[in-house]
Amino acid sequence: MTAGSARHAIEPRVSTKATPTGHRPADRPQAIADIAVHIQRLWEPRMRRQLLAHVEEHRGDGIDPMVLDALRQLR
């Protein structure tokens, strides 16, 4: 895999009516659910703990609101 293809693989889908996060408002609940599933299935427990500690320590500053909503689903 080349550096260019790796970058392309993680870019969000963007529609013409997308929000700044790349999701249409109607997609938001599904996007939050997908983020929660991704974190639960693919992140190591250590990584999840570090993210939760960061969110708690910094009151969520710097974290996308959809990620914060996804983390609430995991608690």
Rank of each mutant, 00 (worst) to 15 (best):
T2E: 15
T2A: 10
A3W: 11
A3T: 13
G4W: 04
G4E: 08
S5Q: 12
S5M: 13
S5T: 14
A6T: 10
R7Q: 13
H8P: 00
A9S: 10
I10S: 09
E11V: 02
R13G: 10
R13Q: 14
V14S: 04
V14D: 04
V14F: 05
S15V: 07
T16H: 11
T16G: 01
K17W: 07
K17L: 08
T19I: 11
P20Q: 02
G22K: 04
G22F: 04
G22V: 06
R24L: 15
R24N: 06
R24V: 12
A26I: 08
D27R: 08
D27H: 10
D27M: 13
R28H: 15
R28P: 01
Q30V: 07
Q30C: 10
A31P: 04
A31Y: 07
I32G: 06
D34N: 15
A36Y: 00
V37Y: 11
V37K: 09
I39Y: 10
I39G: 01
R41C: 11
R41D: 12
R41H: 15
W43T: 00
W43P: 00
E44T: 08
P45S: 13
P45E: 09
P45I: 07
R46V: 14
M47N: 12
R49M: 13
Q50A: 15
L51A: 05
L51W: 08
L51C: 05
L52Y: 02
L52M: 07
H54Y: 15
H54D: 14
V55T: 04
V55Q: 09
E56R: 03
E56W: 01
E56P: 03
E57Q: 12
E57A: 12
H58T: 11
H58Q: 06
H58A: 03
R59D: 08
G60L: 00
G62L: 07
I63C: 11
I63M: 01
D64M: 05
P65I: 06
M66E: 07
V67W: 01
L68M: 09
L68C: 08
D69S: 13
D69R: 09
A70F: 08
A70Y: 04
R72D: 13
R72H: 07
Q73W: 10
Q73A: 09
Q73C: 02
L74C: 11
L74H: 01
L74K: 00
R75W: 09
